[in-house]
Write a protein that binds this DNA or RNA. Structure first.
Length: 486
RNA sequence: CGGGGCGUGGCGCAGUCCGGUAGCGCACCUGCUUUGGGAGCAGGGGGUCGCCGGUUCGAAUCCGGCCGCCCCGACCA
């Protein structure tokens, strides 16, 4: 049986490992419609915990939630030229309704700028109505050609922030600020370190003037774009007539931003922390932070041990998400494997011997160098120690992920041949110069599959900064972060 | 959308070449014994063999079309 359910090792076939983990950790499954996935309760719980954390951050920064419709008139999408060009090829369009051909086709939103701004335009009259700071939790549909669970699905869940401001400076500040919120969430809550920076013109959101992103490095050394934040200038305001009266009595178009993260983050979480034993969920996003596995031999022991387990659970319930696995259809070993596969941060074993000694056994899912995987804790001690241990694991996962990223990042590389070898071999992040031409970007992609993920923000840049373009050898206009990406 | 692979109980597969009415492991149900790293024995339930059509006395198997999934590329959160 052990043989039948073992995961393909990451080193052997990372894609197979990923697909198996999605199935075996009961995160998601297939649906009858191509490219669509069913998010199962365990996977959805992780998303809910992400949502709760992000939503609190959005509210703390002054944003309000609203909800706009799933459908938008085709004509609305077509109002912003670049926007429609970017999204039209991947939209689903409804042409029939109620058994009749529709007068105007309805687009299933691929993103909501084109439905939000025509409506919100009426909410904004004066500079006093600004800034307008909105967010919505929604599903969107993009008819992708190739899908993978969580990473790219035809329908996906996300949040999309949409804001309007009186000045360009303020809108740009918002764009930057929300990128910072994403970064904080990813590092603090997901324990997933990211590099922030600006996208090159070729990688911009359709209709945006500037696009910023967070990029994370997955365990197969490919990059994942985890979140994006766009400065839209007045492009959408002009297209959708979003004007306001200034303090001086003039009329002007608002300056917009939009920003989003999606269920793709669940994929990022899997590929940042998971190992050959299965999923590893950082405690802040773990559906169960502690699973108690009771161990017994007879009915008397069962009662005693379950009492002790329940006692521990109820004392900790205010601080930790604790689950007691009281199933009598599986023996303890089987439960150990199951919860490891599902990435539960801490397992607590309570057997007859422990009850007699008034102790519990705490076993970590993730153990860094120098830490004990298994600890024996007195019952009272456990109540104090377990919450601290959970916090420590959160930090250790983040540190380990950062170390892994740094171990697979190189700087100062200026030889194109070496770059090609690296991208075809181990992969990872390469910080190197870029002359600013789309031709060099395209050539690198053609030769190696690698793209410029971002032009990194200052704190991520190298010292000294690269002098020459990695591809053509001409003077570098900027430092770029290159990688093969999902 | 191009190249490659694959669709058979919930999962993983055999059977397909050479047509004869579906089988194995795991999972599931019942009972007993078990339970500190994937339990054992006994009994049992579950599949129009991806879909549609054709050939045939007879199709999982042969032929045609379609759909879906996986991997690699181009598009993308």
């Amino acid at each position: 049986m052990a043989e039948d359910t073992r995961l393909t090792p990451q080193s052997e076939d990372f894609s197979a490992w990923y697909n198996e983990i999605v199935q075996q950790a009961e995160l998601a499954g297939h649906s009858p419609v191509r490219g669509c996935m069913v998010i199962r309760p365990y996977g959805y719980r992780i998303w809910e915990l992400m949502q709760a954390d992000l939503d609190a951050r959005f509210k703390r920064t002054g944003h309000q939630n609203a909800y706009f419709p799933l459908f938008l008139p085709l004509s609305a999408l077509e109002k912003e030229a670049e926007h429609v060009e970017g999204f039209a090829p991947e939209t689903a369009v409804v042409t029939r309704g109620g058994g009749k051909e529709l007068e105007e086709p309805l687009v299933v939103r691929p993103t909501s700028e084109a439905i939000i701004w025509p409506i919100v335009a009426d909410w904004i009259q004066s500079y006093r109505d600004l800034p307008m700071l909105l967010n919505q939790w929604a599903n969107v549909v993009r008819w992708e050609l190739r899908t993978r669970p969580f990473l790219r699905t035809t329908e996906f869940l996300w949040q999309e922030g949409h804001t309007a401001h009186a000045t360009a400076e303020e809108a740009l500040e918002e764009t930057r600020s929300m990128l910072g919120v994403y970064r904080a969430f990813m590092e603090e809550t997901m324990a997933m370190p990211v590099v922030t920076g600006e996208k090159t013109p070729g990688e911009r959101f359709a209709g945006a003037e500037r696009t910023f992103a967070t990029e994370a490095l997955m365990r197969d050394n490919r990059a994942l774009q985890a979140g994006t934040s766009h400065y839209l200038g007045q492009n959408f305001a002009r297209a959708f007539e979003v004007q306001f009266q200034t303090e001086e009595g003039e009329h002007d178009y608002v300056f917009n931003t939009s920003w989003g993260v999606s269920t793709r983050l669940v994929g990022g979480l899997i590929m940042t922390h998971g190992d050959d034993q299965g999923l590893v969920v950082p405690p802040r996003l773990a559906p169960h932070q502690v699973v108690v596995v009771p161990i017994w031999k007879d009915e008397d022991q069962r009662v005693l041990v379950l009492e002790a387990a329940e006692r521990l659970r109820s004392v900790l319930a205010g601080e930790l998400r604790v689950h007691v696995d009281a199933r009598d259809t599986l023996n303890p070993g089987a439960k150990f494997y199951e919860w490891e596969r599902k990435g539960v941060p801490l397992r607590v074993e309570i057997g007859p011997r422990d009850v007699a000694r008034q102790q519990v056994v705490a076993v970590r899912r993730f153990t860094p160098e120098g830490e004990e995987r298994k600890r024996f804790l007195g019952e009272a001690e456990a109540i104090a120690v377990l919450p601290r241990l959970v916090d420590a694991i959160q930090a250790e996962l983040r540190d380990a992920a950062r170390q892994r990223r740094e171990a697979h990042s190189v700087r100062g590389l200026d030889d194109y041949g070496t770059f090609r070898e690296r991208m075809e071999g181990e992969g990872g992040f390469v910080y190197a110069g870029w002359c600013g031409s789309e031709a060099c970007e395209a050539k690198a992609k053609e030769d190696t599959g690698a793209t410029i993920r971002v032009l990194p923000d200052e704190e991520f840049r190298s010292d000294p900064s690269p002098g020459r373009c990695l591809v053509c050898g001409e003077a570098a206009a900027a430092e770029a972060l290159w990688a093969r990406a999902y």
